[in-house]
């Protein structure tokens, strides 16, 4: 008992610096945000008035909140399934014995290493009104589609960009998962007469479930927090006509355009609740606890 206690103290001592830093820079700010969301705050002059849940009712009454909700949900609903399936397919291809798979892996990993702001500029170059994509589409179909300024299409450019840049990371995660699947499972399935396709759905996918859970969760969290691409593409306005306004961009505008930290904190809290709920649902649906436990 005594020894155990000493071990505990030793452990805690070693953890102390990290715990201290984490609580100072993570826990305290979060707690302060909880406190701020019930106030109307002017950071400059340091005045604050308690307004209860007014910040929340203001947010609910703001059409831009609903625009942000619509954009972000569309974004998550489109990006997460596509990026997960493309990553899985690419990983499965790389895991088969094709030639030069190391080379492919390296080349395909490059987009993840590129900074998102550089990526945004490249995509703006591709999709601008005189850009490669627009001109190609015009040559092929005769229609001139303006991606960046059309409210219906501006978000799709960001979606494509995000899929392009996150797929490689998840692909590598899937690949490591695939390489962990014992070969004898496939042998057994083959002896039982399963085709390659059935092997994929009945051996590979079930074996990959823990990895899949990780990929989907990180995908959902990441896409809900989409900020930099939307910020650069619209110059921080979320335009045209709020079509690229995402939750985090909305929080940024509340804090730094409207200068209203209270409302920005309240909105961050709402976003936190939404992400938490989604992750919880995914956890339940995919039965992650049972798999990992």
């Amino acid at each position: 008992m005594n020894k155990k206690r000493k071990n505990n103290i030793q452990g805690l001592t070693f953890m102390a610096p990290a715990t201290l830093t984490a609580s100072l820079f993570i826990v305290v700010p979060i707690a302060y945000a909880f406190f701020m969301m019930f106030f109307n705050i002017n950071l400059l002059s340091g005045t604050r008035t308690f307004i209860g849940f007014d910040n929340f009712s203001k947010i609910i009454g703001d059409p831009r909140f609903w625009a942000a909700l619509r954009n972000t949900s569309t974004y998550v609903a489109v990006v997460v399934p596509i990026q997960t399936s493309i990553a899985l397919i690419l990983a499965a291809l790389l895991n088969s014995k094709i030639k030069f798979n190391r080379v492919f892996l390296t080349v395909m990993f490059i987009p993840t290493l590129t900074s998102s702001s550089a990526m945004t500029l490249i995509f703006m170059w591709l999709f601008n009104n005189n850009g490669l994509v627009v001109n190609q589409i015009q040559q092929l179909t005769g229609a001139r589609i303006q991606f960046l300024t059309n409210p219906d299409l501006a978000l799709s450019v960001i979606m494509i960009m995000n899929i392009f840049s996150t797929v490689p990371h998840f692909m590598v995660v899937f690949l490591s998962g695939l390489q962990d699947i014992p070969a004898n499972l496939y042998e057994a399935a083959a002896i039982d007469g399963a085709t390659k396709v059935r092997q994929f759905f009945h051996v590979t996918i079930p074996q990959l479930m823990p990895i899949l859970f990780y990929v989907v969760t990180m995908g959902v969290v990441g896409t809900f927090q989409i900020f930099d691409q939307a910020f650069i593409l619209s110059g921080g306005t979320g335009g045209p006509q709020n079509s690229t306004l995402t939750f985090t961009l909305y929080i940024y505008q509340l804090a730094f355009t409207s200068n209203d930290m209270g409302r920005a904190s309240a909105m961050s809290f709402i976003l936190g609740v939404i992400i938490f709920t989604f992750t919880w649902i995914i956890n339940k649906v995919m039965k992650a606890d049972e798999m990992n436990g």
């Binding site: 303006q146 409210p151 335009g239 045209p240 709020n242």
Partner: peptide, 10 residues
């Protein structure tokens, strides 16, 4: 946010 919509004709 909105002038862009006028420029592209929406």
């Amino acid at each position: 946010n909105y002038f862009q919509a006028a420029v592209n004709g929406t």
